[in-house]
Design a protein around this nucleic acid. Sequence first.
RNA 1: GCCGCUGUGGCGGAAUUGGCAGACGCACUUGACUCAAAAUCAAGCGGGUAACACCGUGCCGGUUCGAGUCCGGCCAGCGGCACCA
Length: 800
Amino acid sequence: MKHNFKLIEPKWQKRWQESKVFEAADFDERPKFYGLVEFPYPSGAGMHVGHIKAYSSIEVVARKRRMQGYNVLFPIGFDAFGLPTENYAIKTSTHPRIITDQNIEKFSNQLKKVGFSFDWSRVIDTTDENYYKWTQYIFLKMFEHGLVFRDTALVNYCPSCKVVLSNEDSQGGKCDICHSDVVQKSKTVWYLKITEYADKLLEGLADVDYPKNVKQQQENWIGKSTGAFVWFDVKGTGEKLEIYTTRPDTLFGVTFMVIAPEHPLIDKYADQIGNMDAIEAYRTECTKKTEFERTQLVKDKTGVRIDGLTAINPLNGKEIPIFIADYVMMGYGTGAIMAVPAHDQRDYDFAKKFGIDIIEVIRGGDIAKEAYTGDGEMVNSEFLNGYTNKKDSIARVIEEIKKMGIGEAGVQFKMKDWAFNRQRYWGEPIPLIHCPNCGVVPVPYEELPLRLPDVENFEPGEDGESPLAKIDSYVNCKCPKCGRDAKRETDTMPQWAGSSWYFLRYIDPHNDQAIADRKKLEYWMPVDWYNGGMEHVTRHMIYSRFWHHFLYDIGEVNTPEPYAKRSIQGLILGPDGDKMSKSKGNVIDPLDIVEDYGADTLRTYVLFMGDYGAAAPWNDNSMRGCKRFLERVAGMTDLVSDDPSTQKLETSFHKTIKKVSSDIEEVKFNTAIAALMTLTNTIYSAGALSKEQLEIFIKLLSPFAPHLTEEIWESLGHTDFLSVSAWPEYDESKTVDETIEIGVQINGKVRGTVVLPTDCGKDEALAAAKADEKIASYMEGKTVVKEIYVPNKIINIVVK
RNA sequence: GCCGCUGUGGCGGAAUUGGCAGACGCACUUGACUCAAAAUCAAGCGGGUAACACCGUGCCGGUUCGAGUCCGGCCAGCGGCACCA
């Protein structure tokens, strides 16, 4: 047979679609498998080869599972709210709804051309009102449970996008959308209390199968630290200044305190502060610094002493000065620290610059040169003197400060609450109403969805005001509680809202009574295997795990963790080894490859390129090698024979079944394909194979190259789909050859090989080795010291 | 600075977890077919040698009959976090 991909690929895609062979069946008695891939943002540019690689992994697993007799749910949808569409809408004066529909249409067609076995009856679109109704529903549930709050604080703000960003959306001080520098701005924003779930998100990691680096990155992001809160009296005010520290056992080494420039203590006692002018000047200066400047000036500490306010060390009653300095952040801990210059480098640098005392309380370093942060004997610390173990001294001091009522043990997280509103049009409207009488009132559940109104102009207002604020008919409403005139919240939800629960909607996409039917949720959840990119580990994955834990707590879902297993795909780089980008002109369009080489070649190649989790450059020649391989597979149909000699291939077949089966489970698609190539070479050398053997071969290949293998299956006389035929079984005893060639070493160096019966005994093996002429020559005139024989592996003869 | 990952031919990458390093694919060389080219088929392909020897998995040392794999110490690259108290 010839591999005529242009003919067969559309043919099978049509048949799969018409027969609904990939549609999942709820409550089927077969075991279930829920395979998930990160649904795409339908951009105007269409699909990227990265999408193909990302989807091909679960595609292969899903196809294998179906053949193994599982009831498989492998869905796809579109995460379609977001800025790129909105910006394109502004540029072209087209409604985002129209653009989104066009892009979804384009993406769907492209996905179908690659032959992915998605269940197209369950497609979701996060911008569909019947979908975002439930996004709003979950939001209101969170509101109801006190997880939504409003606060005025310093937030990440992107001046270019004119939008408030969450911590996750401004990693490294850059806007996630346009990559320009984020500034800190005081704003009143809506938060989701994700920090309330910090511990659950951390502990949940113990129960899931994620790659190590994924777990570690999430742990870092959550950033739990344990320590203590300590309250310092501010002399003459009755005020307690609360600090957080991980080393409360260094309390006797405190020689000053530092509070963040934004700390409320300053304004509260402004009239007692003698140098308010200097302090105000410093505060102004701080707000002008960009994130970049702050991180670049790490060594150069700045600050101002607050005249008129001094603190008292609660352990020894010593008076200590208070400074403001921007190396202390309002956003972490309490915005105030006790400074122990002898044992913290930042405090040390500050103390040196301002001429403050440095008191050693832990021995082991040289505090004349630098701060000592290691372990050692405690000194100058009264009741702590003599402790040498940090754990013990911390435990002791916590006990003591608790007794004295001056502090307590505590934990802190780096993770911050999720700034949840965006001053944008193309997002889910936030279903809250501001009533002058009742305060913030939720839109009643029965009024959901709160629909996005039509507007003329999608541009945000000058001071970062949402476009929705300009529509009086939307803004003005009646308070659901008291019935008086009220105003709607006009901001929308962030990009990540819709994707925080989408995997639940696939389970019951058309349900208008609930997120999804409870029984169906219990049947399908959790997601058995979720593949995606590293870039979502500290955004989408954290957010969606948070929402899911919440839904579990209120009894809406049956598992705390949404994803049982996670895998990560590595980037496909351009042929030049650089990241693909339009400006570099090194972008490979997957549809061009489908057109010129076929979908089966594309699919096989993206998985054959290398280690699935690692980045690898695209290589046209290497891709053609995969096409050549598929052509050789097509050619096997001409080798089918009932000649008894084909029985000699049996061992190779059993080995290959075993290898391909296990490699797919271990995300080693490259070696699974390599094994099939090796078997192809073996078959061609043999010159013939049986019909049954060819059937096994195409079954093993079908998850990778489903079109060609369906075609061969049909040509062999089958009228059913290969895609749902039974996955081949292997017989362990038949995976072993009768004879095996092993290496023979003299003194650890390979000097020859010998062919032995499998599992041959030691005497026989050594005799065979010594009979070898070359081996014998190496042993001549030497005495044998030791003989090592590992069956089926190696012979090593040590001589002197 | 802290944490994590990775270093193997000309290239992408294998190696049953301590047992013949370089599977499979690409590139390359030679041959067959062809007027010729492409495609295809056959053979070769880490360095080195006429052939052996010998040298080879980032570097230095160690354990072992035997190390890409284990241990100790470095070096380089990538990713994440970062004045986190």
